[in-house]
Design a protein around this nucleic acid. Sequence first.
DNA 1: ATAAGTATCTTGGTACGCCATAATACGGCT
DNA 2: AGCCGTATTATGGCGTACCAAGATACTTAT
Lengths: 231, 231
Amino acid sequence: MNDDLRGAAIRVERPAKTLRELALDKVREAIVNGYFRPGDRLVERDLCAQLGVSRTIVREVLRHLESEGLVANLPNKGPIVALLDLGEAKQIYEIRGALEGMAARLCAEQGNPAIADALDKSLQDIRNSYQDRDMPGVLAHTSSFYQTLFSMVDRHVAWGVVNLLTVRINHLRSMTIKTENRGVQGPAQMARIVDAIRRGDGPGAYQAAMDHVASASAIAEAVLSGQQSID
Amino acid sequence: MNDDLRGAAIRVERPAKTLRELALDKVREAIVNGYFRPGDRLVERDLCAQLGVSRTIVREVLRHLESEGLVANLPNKGPIVALLDLGEAKQIYEIRGALEGMAARLCAEQGNPAIADALDKSLQDIRNSYQDRDMPGVLAHTSSFYQTLFSMVDRHVAWGVVNLLTVRINHLRSMTIKTENRGVQGPAQMARIVDAIRRGDGPGAYQAAMDHVASASAIAEAVLSGQQSID
DNA sequence: ATAAGTATCTTGGTACGCCATAATACGGCT
DNA sequence: AGCCGTATTATGGCGTACCAAGATACTTAT
């Protein structure tokens, strides 16, 4: 076991990623940032060619994405990129509200100033990204903000759920953050969460997190019903 | 279209389930009710033989269960039945509390007496199962109770999340319900949820649902730490 | 007895082939 | 010309066989 410890120090961190995992990431990413659009068919043999892997891998990847809700399987027709229904999107925002609110409350009750400091740092990254019009950066840092929220109170299961649900509404997210004033209101609402946490105000943090998600949901609904014709 | 209606009546209801789905259900069930124990290795070719299907299917099934959290994949060793650690179990109970509380509150705010009636019916089923010492029945009807809670307010996404998480703690559930007095306390706590819903008391319903899960969590923790040596 | 080499087990991954079904194109018949 | 039945194609569902590489157990030679 001593050997284990010494070995660990110099262990060569191999990628360790299997081909399947790489392919999974590629396809998920392709869906999430719109290379494949909702409703597009995902023909197994075509994906094999595009990814350069065998059908076995492609099938496993499709199964995985199916269980993530990113891909739907039509009987006798095959897999397509899942269509996002407005009602479902609202449900996802609602769940995020419940879980992020919970995490925020727990952070506040923790009474550890380091939490609020870490969140402030993420928040500043978000503001900077908005200023630079770097929208992918906004999304990434927003994710990072919430990941901090969950991981600071050791709630990785809840974080996993939130993450899982979030990829399904990713294109909605990228639309909401481009909305007028969102670059100001969003960070302001998140700052309220951080403030409540710093004050140790559990219910306040909960409410602030709920409010933030609720406003995102409202914007998403407006955007989605406005663009219904395009879909 | 008239033809459709007449045709539907005599349509031969094909299984429509693919072999993969059947195999998935079999393996999931085998894990959930303990035929495969946590930590057991799931050797692909053995599963092929036991299920009577090809490796293609088995691999897809294992991937699927992996993304459900029921199966873990050790690098260079292969899949095993996921081990449940206490902290994770507590997190799952906590999430269930948040979501079931949310659903209960929504049910109460709905102001539809049919909801409470339907829940009462499930509750009676649970009581009967307890009386008959039919533990699988208790679990099934408890699931049904919560499914009603979610589906009555059209929250199938949240129900999906709860369901997903619940299978991971299934063996804990089957232990908690065998606890002394649980056959009385459990239904009593659930009755409080139903009462609050019938009164239209949103916060009360929320709190009652939280309390029920919290007590289940406490029992699970006691059971788990008591049996730690057996694991 | 021990270190080195070897065999075995198992997964990761690939290639190929077969069958069933749905959709489409085609071609013959009236 | 128009319609109906058939052939073809596209595609998913499923199976088999094979190879490479890592891990582990087992020999064997010194």
